[in-house]
Design a protein around this nucleic acid. Structure first.
Length: 211
DNA sequence: GACCAGGTCCTTG
DNA sequence: CAAGGACATGGT
């Protein structure tokens, strides 16, 4: 006899919070978070940092600068990130959206969470995870980020839902605060990187939370 | 050299 | 809807 899905989710959250607590994760100004949200797609964080560093060095680490700079320059700056051509397209799309629709990030920050999410998802190259990362880590909104790691960990626990369902479950269980959403997602990533690699799934100690 | 990484889009069945 | 390929560099 196993417990309900919500209770399992709550136990994961509690277990990880006890293990990691208030870790520093994805700090940085809002421009950096928006740019990083695209750079981190299917890419190791070390590669993201390389590209961010180079963008900063060239004074290109802002939405406004990206919108004003030619593609070739952006491509060269983020080359070490990987997927540099398609990600340049995505960065340019995001930047022209922010500048064109809101006149900049400050204007964007006045938009409702619903409106922002809907608009972000209409930008080519921005899917659910990237949109939620921008909302949660960039704009401090309560939109929980579900990524491949979250899915993997939940699967380890015998859950088998779609990402949209996990999002609802975590949002139901967590307190309504951007900080707790940020921390929990960060905890999941840290845990999964350490214990739930593709070859190690199945040894997950979180299984004890199923009883 | 093989395999993988904090996704998303496009094409097929 | 589910599955598979493309996009690319850098670390193990």
């Amino acid at each position: 006899m196993s417990v309900s899905t919500s209770v399992r989710i709550a136990r994961i959250i509690q277990y990880l919070d006890a293990k990691y607590g208030k870790i520093d994760w994805w700090q940085g100004d809002i421009d950096e978070v928006l740019i990083g949200a695209i750079l981190t797609q299917q890419t190791r964080w070390e590669n993201v940092e390389r590209a961010l560093k180079e963008l900063k060095r060239q004074g290109l680490c802002s939405i406004e600068a990206i919108s004003l700079t030619n593609k070739k320059s952006v491509q060269m700056a983020i080359r070490s990130n990987g997927f540099y051509r398609i990600k340049t397209e995505r960065l340019k799309s995001l930047a022209s959206f922010v500048m064109g629709r809101y006149g900049g990030i400050e204007g964007m920050a006045r938009e409702s969470t619903r409106g922002l999410r809907k608009n972000l998802l209409e930008i080519s190259g921005i899917g659910e995870e990237t949109a939620d990362s921008i909302l949660c880590y960039g704009f401090q909104r309560t939109s929980f980020v579900i990524d491949a790691y979250t899915e993997r960990i939940c699967k380890c626990l015998g859950l088998n839902e779609k990402r949209s369902e996990y999002k609802k479950l975590f949002e139901k269980v967590l307190p309504l605060s951007a900080l707790s959403y940020q921390l929990t997602h960060a905890h999941i990533v840290e845990y999964a990187k350490e214990y739930c690699g593709k070859k190690r799934c199945g040894e997950c100690s979180l299984k004890i939370l199923n009883e």
